[in-house]
Nucleic acid binder design. Sequence first.
DNA 1: CAGGCGTTGCTGGA
DNA 2: TCCAGCAACGCCTG
Length: 540
Amino acid sequence: MASGSNSLMWFRKGLRIHDNPALEYAAKNSSHVYPVFVIDPHYMKPDPTAFSPGSKFAGLNRIRFLLESLTDLDCSLKKISSRLLVLHGDPGDVVIRCLKEWDIKKLCFEYDTDPYYQALDRKVKNYALDSGVEIFSPVSHTLFNPAEIIQKNGGKPPMNCQLILKIAGEPHWLSSSLSTTVPTLPPVGDVGSCEISEVPTVKQLGYEDNQEDETPIFKGGESEALRRLRESINDKEWVAKFEKPNGDPSAFLKPATTMLSPYLKFGCLSSRYFYQCLKEIEKEVKHHTLPPVSLSGQLLWRDFFYTVGFGTVNFDRMRNNAICRQIPWNNDDELLAAWRDARTGFPWIDAIMVQLRKWGWIHHLARHSVACFLTRGDLFVHWEKGRDVFERLLVDSDWAINNGNWLWLSCSAFFYQYHRIYSPITFGKKYDPTGAYIRHFLPVLKDMPKEYIYEPWTAPLSIQTKANCIIGKDYPKPIISHEIASKECKNKIAAAYKLYKTNNGQVSDEDLQKLRRQMVDNLDHNQGTGSRRLKQQKLI
DNA sequence: CAGGCGTTGCTGGA
DNA sequence: TCCAGCAACGCCTG
């Protein structure tokens, strides 16, 4: 039986029992294990000034998911004669206080590459080192160790996904059996004067719990994650044939992907365990798709973005980010708000933005569609603004992956074929010619005939009247002409790329400002056919 | 230094 | 449903 000293298991992500090496280590030779989660008011308290319910940093959907995950974790810990200790306050201060109060000799937590945790962990590690507390912080959130990949690649992160496998080979743990359960944990010791609470409800955190319109799409927690994993991989044919670019973004009754991303984000599901399951299936079936498009490939993409995010200074911004193209994005908050609040006048785009707000999840290609529209395709708004909206609204929002994809979609890094623009009209039509997706998320258009549902402003007034939807009154006119705006966007990016080349990648703030002025001049020369002018005239 | 390639573009024709 | 043609990017490889 366990004997020895006290251990603190600090949960942050990795909200699971299975494949949790930090938890296993905490349990080893300890007389007491204190499983802790710290609720950071800074992250969790309601922010009434935000554009959607939630805190300053996270929408309510994600906060709810996190709380559900904690409840499930508490429940699982109770089954192995322990419990989750929930504390409130600045996580660094709280953990340091616990280390003192409980006479902790081992501090265990999953290693995290996000800048937030890098800073936080530095603080806690410094204290622990000074006071003789042993630290165990294994890499178990990703398939590979990002630092190791970077080192093997000569000190730089690999800049395409295929390279990861080439550099790393198969993960070292692939053929070993990852723990699926922990039989029992040493008991929680005396908590002294530390204030312990149960997992709070959203109401207790100060939120209105108005789960009005639709039942939530996700239920947080490891139990649900494992259940959904089984369900997803049950159909081996489906797994074997999975090809990411071929998914249907308009499928909402039965979405086209596994929808496991929120569980991977919080570590309710181990990406390593998931990968093992997929490899097992790939071994069994005759033919299967391959990375990067296969289902297993999707986990490699995750590692790819984690690695580049870890190895790139200022990965989450344009300025002073060595891999990011300098592009003179505009600062038009009106355009941004129209996109964010689903009133661009393009039903395909607006329907996606409604789904994002309600579900906290949209299909990968839907993300592409709206991200392209906001940035390089139509509105030319800065990708950092769109990133912020996604970061808030997505339940699965993950720092490295979200930023990486916005860099990708805005043609700022990784991908540069800026002339390939998703049409806000024809792209969705391809998958859903009758507009069922639009009708579901934008009921105001539910009676619009299918001939006009993607471009309702072209419907004759008699049709609009019959459909009970007057464009410009019941549903907005399009904020830009896609034909004109997309052409302008291409020209702007071409100019920015050109400057980047002539300046050898050294583009200053002044250079960008100059470029912006030139662009305004160009618009004026074009006799007001530019998007700016169109917007002023409220033209369609 | 040229040629091939890149998870997910669009249009129009067969 | 598949394909060519369009326009045309940078990065990697040899």
